[in-house]
Amino acid sequence: MNKYFSLKRFSHLLKREIHINIKRDLLIIGAMYSLFTLVIFLVFEFSEEVYNEKFFEEFHFVTYIIMLFVGSVFITSFSFIELRDKLKSHFYLLTPGSNFEKFLVNILISFLGYALFMLISYLIYSSIFNWITWELYQLPFKPLNIASSDFLLVMQIYIIAHSVFFLGAITFKKYPLVLTPIAGFILLTLFSVINNIMAKLILSDMSADNQFDNMGLSEFFLGYEGLAKATVFYVGPLILWFIAYLKLNEKEH
């Protein structure tokens, strides 16, 4: 049998993962929906705010994005959770399956599975929500519109967020949910500081943008905007996922 990927082993691992960890994931999603419903209905009940047309149009889109991201951060951070527990990690590491299959199973659940589940569940939720809010408060909420042009951008950011938290989940032995954003913040700050220092050293001026303009570099870089976006949105996550896979290979008990 192939030592990197076998559909049979992959499906066994997927079933194992679902049986062992799905309860927690569903609880997170359930808690999110419940909390949101409670808060929003309290607002409708006690608020006297006058809502405009845009509010009814975009309400579900914004809510869906918030829920998608909040849930994703939690669920992705819980990937490889067994590896963080000394009493459980040997079971996971020694479960007959390749590291690639274990990696794919976690990607499938926390990335594709979760996104698909959230989309379907939110479509159902929003329909019920709209019906109730109309019946109770005569509020004309529009259905969730995923054909919106912003949806692609949202999904691109979702991919980046997933890859960052996925890497955090396998990197940090404890509290990846907290440590990943902290590490991300520190790295971005460092990057920004180094960037500024380099700009000062090379261009002798902190106002790098002006210097770029003077040298005609802004136009030069604008020509590569598409490439830069593709790198950030697609190549970046691939690199982070690959690093996560390498980290899984390095895991010891």
């Binding site: 079971f91 479960t95 399956g97 299959e101």
Partner: peptide, 17 residues
């Protein structure tokens, strides 16, 4: 940790959950 190897080895640790 190749799958064929893992299918043929079992480790019972002292402590586990």
């Amino acid at each position: 940790r190749e799958p064929d190897f893992l299918e043929d080895i079992f480790y019972i640790p002292e402590e586990f959950e």
